[in-house]
Design a protein around this nucleic acid. Structure first.
Length: 732
RNA sequence: GGGCGAUUAGCUCAGUUGGUUAGAGCGCCACGUUGACAUCGUGGAGGUCGGGGAUUCGAGCUCCUCAUCGCCCACCA
């Protein structure tokens, strides 16, 4: 405050400010909430004073107002200088109704010709625009509404009345005097106190202000020249628009809590002393009859110093040197003006450097109906209660993954419940993995140190690496929600549902026992690290258990929260394994589906015959997976089959023919129906692909790999169709 | 008055360089086999991506326009 005052950037002046009559306090423009409220536009005739030498009825000038009670404080009527209708009246006088005060008719460009009557009553004490007009034309201000929203002595007969009672009274009186022309329904943008909802009264008051224009320049430059990036980008425009149209900031508040304004008023000479230390005497006349200004500072006047005042500023501390400027400021978009823009301004002004390189803005959390949470509405969700019921990690994960940057989130209890289940899944899977692998040993190797053996091993390691790359990329783009969802997907659907299930089989195999245990643990460790920012508590707890047997010196870190963030190792990306495993997954799912259709009992092992062409050798190697996960007998795998199995259900998945011989269980009619559906699907695909490939423009203009992909898809679909049709023929 | 966002499955939402058959959670239907997890597993049903137009070989995604909802800014009394 003192520095800005000394630099001439803080001044004290009488201005129109937003006054909350309930709190008896001034508030800044940002704390006023404008609401369109139904009201009336009242047309009032002001008698004109006769011009010199004029004879007969001098007539009237008509104005429109939404606040008739302010008529009592009018000190002029203004018209637009270019308005032909009123040109002759400029410089003449009118009489304020009721008060019978003589006021000038002035010309001011602020008046819109096309609104109302084109003439406006001017009440400098109760309207910001009127105040400015008053300044330009040296008009007196007459305050007719007091700080308690009651009429003052200056309001004559209305003294003591509430502002709204006075409004009614004034209208009635105008009517009685025959000066009320008419009233119209009109929607009025009405300012309310953000905190208590009371209608704001614009009043002239002596307050402290900060000159903002010089400060805004730096904050604008920092954004425009790329020193400060705003994510998502669209908020940058909101930031610059505000700074470009900045108005001075009223920083004094008539409250008794807050930082007191370091200014002392002298009763002797009337001057002000602003000082860092409490002064004993007036700096101007030496009198000891000084009293400190009773006002305190707007809370944001402290907050805008936050990026450096928290680091020990104005001392030149080690913290300040190290942490200022910081990299990312994360906050809600609703306080871009209150806080972000002002921090940028103060940081640049006091330290010469923007306080953060990136501002990441998140959305607001709303209730399940999308309403803003508010105490008066009673729809505030208490995070403590949610955490008690579902856990902190579940809430945190939900908030982090429910939306997209800068967009509001409707908080859904269902979603939180689902993520509670996820935390539970992590716990259970980890418990199982640790329980199964504890005695096998092998420690917890880094993912990159693994030598995956089986197809499933290669697949899960590759998937984990790919995920790591993806998450890192998304973090770089501030796509935290998408990154979290992908980790969720990997952990639950790939690691738990597939790999852990497969590992149950591999752990039975003496040769695979140890490597499988190592992979289980390494991938778990890896996934925990990726997940830690989203679910710090469960992951940390599990991680501590995971490393419980590892000597302190051999651990990568004392705790997960400080463990190294994973980096993708491209050498372990294994497209071939991913493709091969996808085929196995497809076949297993198809067999399961067929079993369900045939209503085969879940416990029953079924026979299966796979006709796989070139993929036969792959399937032979991975037969045990199919056996285990699709609950089949040892599958019979052929490259080709001359005679197709009779009395069996069939399906084609990834080009592989799948037969389940189900003598006695086969319902030929239903099977035919099922085949028909599949055939239809295949035909649809073929039609689609043909249409594209028959279009010479597609072939010549699309990227070659896209065309090739389409050709492959067509070939695959045709192959599938041929197989399905052959099958239908066999069914007879 | 100016600007921004949203509109995708019954519900809540993803889908960011335009490219096979648009995904998830919840809900729904059916079934539950070897004890990590029923806060679970398996399979399934369900969407002409708000309307219209344009660009393109190709649009949920780009452009124009309209509609509905929401938000921000704003001194036409």
């Amino acid at each position: 405050f003192v520095r800005l005052y000394e630099e001439g950037l803080i001044y004290r002046a009488e201005r129109i400010i937003n006054w909350c009559p309930r709190f008896m306090n001034a508030i800044s423009d940002l704390e006023v909430e404008v609401e369109n409220t139904p009201g009336k536009l009242t047309y009032v005739r002001y008698p004109l004073e006769p011009a010199e030498g004029q004879k007969g009825e001098p007539g009237y000038i008509m104005v429109a107002t939404t606040r008739p009670e302010t008529i009592l404080g009018d000190t002029a009527i203004a018209v637009n200088p270019d308005d032909a209708r009123y040109k002759a009246l400029i410089g003449r006088y009118a009489i304020v109704p009721i008060m019978n005060r003589r006021i000038p008719i002035v010309a001011d460009a602020a008046v819109e010709k096309d609104f109302g009557t084109g003439a406006v009553k001017v009440t400098p004490a109760h309207d910001p625009t009127d105040f400015e007009i008053g300044q330009r034309h040296s008009l007196p201000s007459i305050q007719v509404i007091g700080f308690d929203a009651r009429m003052t002595e200056a309001a004559g007969a209305f003294v003591g009345q509430d502002r709204y009672d006075a409004r009614k009274g004034v209208v009635a009186e105008l009517e009685r005097l025959g000066l009320l022309d008419h009233e119209e329904d009109y929607t009025i943008p009405l300012g309310h106190c953000e905190r208590c909802g009371t209608v704001i009264e614009p009043l002239i008051s002596m307050q402290w202000f900060v000159k903002m224009a010089p400060l805004a320049t730096g904050a604008l430059g920092a954004y425009r020249y790329g020193q400060m990036r705003i994510v998502p980008e669209r908020f940058g425009k909101i930031y610059t628009d505000w700074l470009e149209n900045i108005r001075d900031w009223n920083i004094s508040r008539q409250l008794w809590w807050g930082h007191r304004i370091p200014a002392w008023h002298c009763a002797n000479c009337g001057q002000i002393t602003v000082a860092r230390e409490d002064p004993a005497v007036c700096a101007h006349c030496g009198s000891d009859r000084i009293t400190q200004d009773p006002d305190v500072l707007d809370t944001w006047f402290s907050s805008w110093l936050w990026p450096f005042s928290t680091l020990g500023w104005p001392e030149d501390t080690a913290d300040l040197r190290r942490y200022y400027p910081t990299s990312v400021m994360e906050t809600g978009y609703d306080i871009i003006f209150f806080w972000v823009a002002r921090m940028a301004m103060s940081g640049i002004h006091f330290l010469g450097v923007v306080p953060f390189n990136t501002v990441y803005l998140h959305g607001l959390i709303r209730d399940e109906q999308g309403r803003k949470m508010s105490k008066s509405l009673g729809n505030v969700i208490d995070p403590i209660e949610v955490m008690d019921e579902y856990g902190t990690d579940a809430l945190r994960f939900t908030l982090a993954t429910s939306g997209t940057p800068g967009n509001d989130i409707k908080l859904s209890m269902n979603r939180i419940m689902g993520n509670r289940n996820f935390a539970n899944k992590i716990w259970n899977a980890s418990r199982f993995v640790m329980g199964q692998t504890e005695e096998i040993g092998g420690g917890i190797p880094a993912l990159g140190a693994l030598q995956p053996k089986t197809l499933a091993d290669r697949w899960i390691v590759s998937r984990a690496q790919r995920l790591t790359g993806e998450v890192t990329r998304l973090f770089g783009e501030y796509q935290f929600g998408e990154a979290g969802r992908e980790i969720f997907e990997f952990f639950w659907s790939e690691y738990c549902d597939w790999y852990v299930e497969i590992a149950k089989g591999q752990l039975q195999d003496a040769k695979l026992r140890e490597p499988t245990a190592r992979i289980l643990r390494a991938v778990l460790d890896h996934a925990l690290r990726l997940l830690h920012p989203y679910m710090p508590f469960v992951t940390e707890e599990v991680w501590q258990h995971l490393y419980a047997e590892v000597p302190e010196a051999e651990r990568p870190a004392s705790a997960l929260i400080v463990a190294p963030w994973p980096v993708m190792d491209a050498r372990q990306l294994d497209a071939e394994a991913e493709e091969g495993f996808a085929l196995i997954q497809e076949i297993i799912t198809a067999i399961r589906d067929t079993r369900k259709h045939a209503e085969v009992e879940a416990a029953m092992r079924v026979q299966v015959i796979l006709v796989a062409g070139a993929r036969a050798s792959l399937l032979k190697r991975e037969a045990s997976l199919i056996e285990q996960l699709a609950r089949t007998e040892s599958p019979r795998i052929e490259r080709k089959l001359a005679t197709k199995p009779e009395q069996s259900m069939a399906q084609v998945a990834g080009g592989v023919e799948i037969y389940l011989p189900l003598a006695g269980l086969l319902d030929v009619a239903r099977e035919r129906e099922r085949l028909a559906t599949q055939i239809e699907t295949a035909r649809g695909q073929i039609e689609r692909s043909r249409k594209m490939l028959d279009n010479p423009n597609f072939v010549s203009r699309a990227r070659p790999d896209v065309v090739q992909k389409e050709r492959d898809a067509l070939a695959a679909a045709e192959d599938t169709l041929a197989k399905l049709e052959a099958r239908r023929g066999e069914l007879g």
